[in-house]
Design a protein around this nucleic acid. Sequence first.
DNA 1: TAGATTGTTAATCGATTAACAATC
DNA 2: TAGATTGTTAATCGATTAACAATC
Lengths: 222, 222
Amino acid sequence: MSKDGSISASVIKRLPRYYRFLGELQKEGLERISSRELSERMKLTASQIRQDLNCFGGFGQQGYGYHVDELRMEIGKILGVDKHFKTILIGAGNLGKAIATHINFETRGCNLIGIFDINPKLTGEVVGNIPIRHTNDIESFCEANSPVVAVLCIPKANTQAIADQLVNLGLKAFWNFSHYDLSIDYENIVVENVHLGDSLLTLTYATNIITSTDTDNSEEIE
Amino acid sequence: MSKDGSISASVIKRLPRYYRFLGELQKEGLERISSRELSERMKLTASQIRQDLNCFGGFGQQGYGYHVDELRMEIGKILGVDKHFKTILIGAGNLGKAIATHINFETRGCNLIGIFDINPKLTGEVVGNIPIRHTNDIESFCEANSPVVAVLCIPKANTQAIADQLVNLGLKAFWNFSHYDLSIDYENIVVENVHLGDSLLTLTYATNIITSTDTDNSEEIE
DNA sequence: TAGATTGTTAATCGATTAACAATC
DNA sequence: TAGATTGTTAATCGATTAACAATC
């Protein structure tokens, strides 16, 4: 933890994974776990786990370890799984529809309450119980419902303009799937960019390394 | 760069973003760019950019900067955009279909050649020019076509078993969208886990911080 | 040549790991 | 009490930033 009490991004990014693994342990019926056991499952060091968890306070018990249920609940609370942030999704193409139906927003502190698309042919179509509205209706919808989180599944050309509009309508958080680095110059707005293309390219790099290293070890001699 | 010539993961993960931004610059018709100008656009330090690029050799020119076209090409070559790794996708549900149609595999060194699903009702349906095959046909298809990369859009329960099967069939790389940490205990296999749920949870955490900090600054006094 | 900007080394910063005293 | 395992401090490691000599 830094001096001002804020938690480093490296720690935060590990929390959802802890939460997931603890859920698994719970399903297996485990009551307690030590940092060492958990470290083996998660392929981390026990030291890192203890260090991470102690950013938020002493959830463990010396000589015993951690209560699985309790620890999971605490991490969930930190992440905000019990929140109900009103969420809208813009862009109901292939990806937008898949996100809307595939992601369990509720268990992650978000309530998907509206879906919008610019294509009038989609208006009225229902995706996961939610009717698609036309993007023209975003403004009135936001004024009536005050959503906080926006999921952007729109082409890169429109992203910045839509984001600007949504910020003006009071949206605070953006889950951005567009092929564009949403750089928000506003205060108190958060953005999570998901670059699937970048992710695939990283895999291509790694694939290239392993498939060409397989047969060529000539460089390995000192 | 480390002693053995391998590049750190932190550097690699930045390469696709460089590649993207250079593409934008190219579109804008820019011929040259200095590390300082690029750093302002990308919100990095100029130092980091020079450090990163020099892992791979001197692409720049003192007193001038970098040729946009040349630098983009070099990074593309490093990432492997010119490769043609044969790729199959398993699981043609909402997400699988969206990935198959939404991602441009070709520009990222991958060739999507087959789509599979366990649901016989989907067999024969065409997604982005590719017919869905039944998962029973994976083995014969792999023996005939030798794919290298597998995209997994399947439920978590099946993931490890399918991955094991695919490793035995010679697959080398996994782009894993299932809600499961694919931990590969085999040598020379690479995995890129995409945890959309974790990504949303990270955003929920951040949303929680900003929306509750907005009105409460009481802790800020030393 | 003078100005600009790289390539590269050195300094700093932060994150991870190790160690151990505290304590259940 | 003895054994186990945490919470926490100190040591290490790696990544980022700063500085500057090399050079276009």
